[in-house]
Amino acid sequence: MKQLHFITTHEDHRVALLAALAITIHIIESAFPTPLPGIKPGLANVITLFCFIRYGWKTALQVSLLRVVISSLILGSFLSPTFLLSLSGALLSLLSLLLVQWPFRHHLKYQPSAIGYALIASISHISGQFLVAWYFFIPHPGLFKLLPIFITFAVLLGLVSGIITQFLVEPYKALPE
């Protein structure tokens, strides 16, 4: 029988490194108290955004899934409601990023910068979480009264993470992949 051996590519290393970074941020962030349940700075999303802008959606998807799954394993929330919320937010935000990028795929000039993408990601992230929370866990219409507050925070925090991402991305602009 032939020996089984893996070939790891440069890209694999990159995904591993970025995922490790995202997981670290995610876990540190989860240790801080939040003003409103469900509202977090979402700095781990900066890494996802960075991946998306710099390397494309496939890398971003892998990094963000790895982050969601591994962080939840470490925090002991795997397959719990928290995990499902985290996963739905991450998936919806990536999907929205793709949808926004699609019309501009041949017009790089008009593509949003990190800030625009961050706003999209953060609003869709919280909307995804909200819908899952409402549908699965708290199917009470009163929850919708909180939605405007959540979205307001999403816009503010999206701006912040967008600016951070922009600082992260700019130095790489000149470099090849």
């Binding site: 089984l4 051996h5 893996f6 590519t9 694999d12 892998q62």
Partner: peptide, 9 residues
């Protein structure tokens, strides 16, 4: 048998 890790992942 070599397995490329990208599809595996």
């Amino acid at each position: 048998m070599p397995i490329k890790i990208l599809p595996a992942r």
